[in-house]
Design a protein around this nucleic acid. Structure first.
Ligand code: FES
Ligand code: FES
Lengths: 146, 146
DNA sequence: TTATAAAAAGATATTTTTATCTTTTTTTTT
DNA sequence: AAAAAAAAAGATAAAAATATCTTTTTATAA
């Protein structure tokens, strides 16, 4: 569905939102550990997210990653777009060069509806929403049997 | 969403169903051409599908690929399962090791519903259905701008 | 102002997916 | 039987995704 980079990015964003506030930042290692991802790969991802301003970072001692209010409103769709591009919006499920109404593939019309719902979900859910969910301790970013 | 192999497999299955009947078979090259895929890669895919009995083949002059009645009832889900495995059924969108109700990721519950609809679509649509659609000439397996 | 901690950047390595090429086997026709 | 046509099988290559390692820059604190 999504690339590993994207999956990691989503988890990282949620994690940072959870653990950081105005004056305490989260370090790379902590993010990797908390989301169960390889440290150097997570480093790359955080750099990307940071470059694209989905999170902010500060270097030096006590540095790390953190979010501002705008960042907290980031939706899953935003993260997917930043990491995997707009494929979910534009691409044909069967891989036709163009997904359009003029030359639709056999699943186009049916898929359109599902796609709409899926995208709506991605756009609706913000980091803050997840944050709230996670506070209830009923949701997880990693689970058993690794 | 799906792997290239899977996309190609779906298109190939539809194509073979369209073009073959009890005594005329479809050759590899014709399939590759008709679905706009690289010939040697399509060869591999047809071998797989054939080994898994989703299509049948005969060697030698006038040989090629064809389908029996059972094959025509193959659903998209069957093809996806054969080529990409059961990931769409079992995997967590965020890549958690286990997707379950006990330790759900933050999108689990919402995604569950969409997933169900998506899978239903894949299971409902058979090759025959597509075949009928394609007969109307209102659907396509390849389009412009390649 | 120096040492240190942390992210940024860049280079390299591994694995998986996608694609291609070559040889073998099977079947049909002559 | 021999030749030819077609898929099957196997080997190889290229590209993309994933993962790791090393060096540089920046900011803080002593
Ligand atoms: S053309 Fe295939 S999904 Fe639109
Ligand atoms: S745990 Fe993530 S989708 Fe089920």
């Amino acid at each position: 569905m999504f690339s590993k980079s994207c999956e990691y990015a989503i988890k990282a964003m949620i994690f940072v939102a959870q653990k950081s506030d105005s004056d305490s930042k989260v370090g790379l290692k902590e993010i990797a550990e908390g989301t169960d991802t390889p440290v150097p790969f997570m480093a790359k991802i955080m750099q990307e997210l940071s470059k694209k301003k989905l999170v902010h970072s500060s270097k030096g001692p006590n540095g790390g990653f953190y979010m501002n209010k705008k960042n907290l409103k980031t939706s899953i769709a935003d993260i997917v777009l930043a990491t995997d591009g707009d494929g979910i919006y534009s691409k044909c499920v069967l891989g036709l060069k163009n997904c359009n109404e003029k030359t639709p593939c056999p699943v186009h019309h049916e898929y359109k509806d599902i796609k709409k719902k899926f995208i709506a979900m991605l756009e609706k859910n913000t980091i803050t929403d997840f944050n709230e969910k996670l506070m209830t301790k009923k949701f997880f970013l990693k689970n058993e049997e690794n």
